[in-house]
Amino acid sequence: MGNVIGIGAAPKRKEDQRFLTGRGNYVSDIKRPGMAAGVFVRSPHGHAVLRLARYPAAGASRTPRVFR
């Protein structure tokens, strides 16, 4: 198949070099100044009435380095 051109060819991929050497730079690899990580808390109920919403989760705003 080495000499196939166009459809059916197996061209070398340009992106492979960085993936193979650990330089892929996925979203979780990115670090920026002042960056924060977000956490979603989702309802465990598919269909329910929201009676009381605490925001943020109790205690979170008092934990160092956690902000709202």
């Binding site: 197996a10 991929r13 492979d16 070099q17 960085r18 993936f19 193979l20 050497t21 650990g22």
Partner: peptide, 22 residues
């Protein structure tokens, strides 16, 4: 130069998104 195993993965298309590759 890349390691022979890295070269082999490139040559034989042993990766797609690359996340598991390292």
């Amino acid at each position: 130069l890349m390691h022979p195993m890295q070269e082999a993965f490139r040559e034989h298309h042993g990766l797609q998104c690359g996340f598991c590759t390292p």
